[in-house]
């Protein structure tokens, strides 16, 4: 390694760094912008009670006991109420794969932060409804 080849390497590195200054940043301004979430995104769940048959396969499949089922709470013919505990959920997707009646799905809502810990225990009403649309909520509207 001669002196001049080392100098050449130094200038190559400086060239790379210098050319980087004029490129666009890669990051997104998160609260104002967001990446596009793909179809299969495993966000919070949504429970469709019309299709539910209270088979409790999702409860069995859950590796961290995050789902609780209440079979006495009936709105339709043979459904059940689901209580989701998002302090425990690891979003593995096993419950959705276990559901044979298409009654449980993931949504694209991935930012679940809440001011209080208790708010992360979703009761049946919250797990049935989507309080905000993941794509409608985002965009440059907030800027």
């Amino acid at each position: 390694m001669g002196f001049f080849s080392t100098l050449g390497e130094i200038f190559t590195i400086l060239k790379h760094v210098f050319s980087q200054v004029f490129e666009r940043p890669f990051t997104v301004l998160y609260p104002y912008e967001d990446r596009e979430h793909p179809e299969r995104t495993r966000g919070r769940h949504i429970h469709i009670r019309e299709k539910c048959t209270a088979c409790a396969q999702c409860v069995r499949a859950c590796p961290v006991v995050a789902i609780r089922i209440d079979k006495s709470d009936r709105k339709y013919e043979k459904d059940a109420a689901l209580y989701f505990d998002y302090t425990r959920c690891i979003f593995c997707g096993l419950c959705v794969q276990a559901c044979r009646f298409n009654a449980l799905f993931h949504t694209k809502v991935v930012d679940l932060s809440e001011p209080e810990r208790e708010r992360l225990h979703y009761d049946p009403e919250r797990i049935e409804t989507l309080d905000r649309d993941p794509l409608e909520w985002r965009g440059s509207r907030f800027r």
Partner: peptide, 12 residues
């Protein structure tokens, strides 16, 4: 990976 499985790291 997210496009395929829906999760970035914990792919399962």
């Amino acid at each position: 990976f997210e496009e395929l499985t829906g999760s970035r790291h914990a792919v399962s």
